[in-house]
Write a protein that binds this DNA or RNA. Structure first.
Lengths: 213, 213
DNA sequence: TAGATTGTTAATCGATTAACAATC
DNA sequence: TAGATTGTTAATCGATTAACAATC
């Protein structure tokens, strides 16, 4: 399990394996070959075997892979059994959607606090969690051993908030803003979700498809 | 402009260029060298020049690139001046956040309809757009020349909705569900946003960072 | 045993980086 | 002209695919 040097591209594929394996498990499929799995996922058998072997031989020659065992192994590799304590900052549209919608417990996290600076919505609840005043952020993070932050504030507020979090030891970010955390904090762990970037690439593809008609 | 064979990796970087160039423009920076731009974006000068040259020589030797001209060129390449008509289906948390939050007009799109099957919220408004009954989807798409759909429904509803859209000629999708559109419709243009996948990779990275302590 | 399918090495392909001549 | 910086070719690096011996 402790193999090092797993490439980012492999890691990014693991959640997909996990999802398809979960579906197979629900359909009571007990075993699957790299070829079949590749077919379902529209990739190659080679890639499936190469990927899975980064972590050690989960398969059996002449048999394939045990669906449920493989699924569990991937969960372990991803660390989904963790309960990293996380806070969400900014309960606007995106923040509220994230807080209400994500099944954090299945994803290795536990959402323990929601913060906003809009006095009017303080005390409102999202999934049993009260919206907390942003000025309590530091004390809360220290008291509760918070390890990650989900950043859903406007870009103008992001640098300040990240700085404050970083100062109380929160160095892992799920970043929905366009603030460039890695630029200022190269050692932070960051996953960015730049929704508008993605929509722009859809625009490009549609544009291109039209030209090629 | 009509260069073909631009790789997906280059395209995915264009929105980032666009963002950083917009910032530079706001700061009244008139020109920039590939080296400086690379520094800001934490990449290499080589990559910047290589990327930009896919589309033709926007730079001037000995001078660099004109920030505003380059920004405009990238906008043109991405097709941000389009107004692709789009519908959003599913106005739950995520759907509402997307409808209310995105500046579609800056991103090449125009949101012309929002649909849901929850009778209780029909008629409610999000940014001046009434929530429409899902059963009117087909007629609406045909009448309004809809070209793209933003899919924010539960996974269980996704296959049905995509099929219906596809049948009335909507083949471009921004997909927030885990339904695998490309699996069933290989010629559809799709951008997936699998939020839980991204959160899982953040979990992995945090897990890994802890092990290496 | 024969058939199936893995684990793993080697070959290919693509993307990134380095180098440098062209030129503003 | 000298200095700066591009455009572009060549070298390197990494990721994907193909091939096949090992083995269940």
């Amino acid at each position: 399990m402790n193999k090092e040097n797993i490439s980012k591209s492999v890691i990014r594929r693991l959640p997909r394996y996990y999802r398809f394996l979960s579906e197979l498990e629900e359909n009571d499929t007990e075993r699957i070959s790299s070829g079949k799995l590749a077919q379902i996922m529209r990739t190659t058998a080679s890639q499936v075997r190469q990927d899975l072997n980064c972590f050690g031989g989960f398969g059996h020659q002449g048999y394939g892979y045990s669906v449920s065992k493989l699924k569990d192994e991937i969960a372990k590799i991803l660390g989904l059994d963790n309960k990293f304590k996380a806070v969400l900052i900014g309960s606007g549209h995106i923040g509220t959607a994230i807080a209400a919608h994500m099944e954090f417990k299945k994803l290795g996290f536990e959402l323990v606090g929601i913060f906003d600076n809009n006095q009017e919505i303080l005390g409102e609840k999202i999934n049993d969690l009260e919206i907390n005043d942003e000025k309590n952020l530091e004390s809360f993070c220290k008291d509760n051993n918070v390890e990650a932050a989900f950043l859903c504030v406007p870009k103008s507020a992001a640098a300040d908030i990240v700085g404050r979090l970083y100062n109380c030891g929160v160095k892992n970010f799920w970043n929905f803003t366009h603030y460039y955390i890695q630029g200022d904090y190269p050692d932070a762990t960051v996953e960015n979700v730049h929704l508008s970037d993605i929509l722009m690439t859809l625009c490009y593809s549609m544009n291109e498809a039209e030209e090629n008609k």
